[in-house]
């Protein structure tokens, strides 16, 4: 798909989101859902970049989100670091963690990468709840309950003033996804696709698998860490509940709905999934089942996700 088409789809999606406050600006519940859509759009896009484009079966995306969230929260609660600085530091720290997780993955085949990265996810909960976490200020099983909102030059972005917070999130989300678009369309993106398609051929043409795989780990965990950090400041509290399977599955649904390797499908997937999840809330215990059934249907009918609707035939074959 050409960059023009990608940018158009992103422009329309974010454009529609941008005018929503004019219609539903006073409905707190809907504004909250929209903010969540904007946050998850970035995380799902990062996952798509590393898995769909670079072909690395990283299942650590939620873990990186939580690492970013806790890092920033701990920095601002325990060390009084200003929120914006804390968010950036959290992004850098998460990127470092991404590289550390990425290193052992370089030599491993797909399914093992999935195991290693999901292993990081699995160990995170006991670490945060245990003595190490408590010593660092994770709040153990209770979590962190008093995270200050983002504050820029004395202006606070919190759920108390939702509309400005919405536009701030929109700005963050657009910046992050435009970075992802630029990377996909740059020679980095070409290197990722080449390595995914045939690593030995790509290397024989001078592509360094080491460099580009670590770069994709660093970049996606940086952006995911930043969004996680922002999420913590927006919600005001964090707990390890995020690491339960719920969120992980929802994120996977976003990717499947949007189409894996079909950027900017992941953005649409995030909007659709977060919204559907809320619409299905009245079903109570049946929500998960219904969502699951919808996913099965969608995979069967639209294997390329909603992006399948836009793809030209030649694109779809690849």
């Amino acid at each position: 798909m050409s960059s023009k088409r990608m940018a158009t789809i992103m422009g329309v999606t974010y454009g529609i989101a941008a005018i929503m406050p004019f219609f539903v600006g006073d409905i707190r519940f809907i504004m909250h859902i929209l903010i969540m859509c904007l946050i998850w759009a970035v995380v799902a896009s990062c996952w798509d970049l590393i898995m769909g484009f670079a072909g690395i079966f990283s299942f650590g995306q939620v873990a990186f989100f939580v690492i970013g969230a806790y890092t920033s929260a701990i920095l601002s609660v325990q060390w009084n670091v200003p929120s914006v600085v804390a968010i950036l530091l959290a992004g850098v720290f998460t990127a470092g963690m991404g590289v550390i997780v990425g290193l052992p993955c370089l030599k491993l085949a797909g399914p093992y990468v999935a195991l290693v990265t999901f292993g990081v996810h699995m160990t995170l909960m006991p670490v945060l709840r245990g003595e190490i976490g408590i010593a660092l200020g994770s709040g153990g099983s209770q979590g962190i309950l008093t995270i200050p909102p983002v504050n820029i030059l004395g202006y606070t972005f919190s759920s108390a003033n939702q509309i400005p917070t919405f536009y701030f999130t929109l700005f963050l989300s657009v910046v992050c996804t435009v970075i992802i678009l630029a990377v996909i369309k740059s020679y980095w993106g070409t290197a990722f696709l080449a390595l995914k398609d045939s690593e030995e051929f790509a290397m024989s043409l001078g592509v360094s698998a080491f460099k580009y795989k670590l770069m994709v780990f660093a970049l996606t965990s940086f952006l995911t860490g930043v969004m996680g950090a922002f999420y913590g400041h927006y919600i005001g509290m964090l707990s390890t509940r995020m690491l339960e399977l719920d969120l992980f599955c929802t994120l996977m649904v976003m990717l499947v709905v949007g189409g894996i390797g079909r950027f900017p499908g992941a953005i649409l997937g995030a909007f659709i999934t977060v919204t559907a999840n809320e619409l299905l809330a009245p079903l109570g215990a049946y929500r998960a089942v219904t969502l699951g059934a919808l996913v099965v249907l969608l995979v069967l009918l639209l294997p390329n996700g909603v992006m399948g609707l836009w793809l030209k035939r030649s694109d779809a074959e690849a």
């Binding site: 290197a191 696709l193 080449a194 790509a202 690849a318």
Partner: peptide, 14 residues
């Protein structure tokens, strides 16, 4: 070996 995701021109420019 080929790059199924890339076009002929893009593959050669790799």
């Amino acid at each position: 070996q080929i790059f199924p995701s890339l076009t002929v021109k893009k593959s050669i420019s790799v």
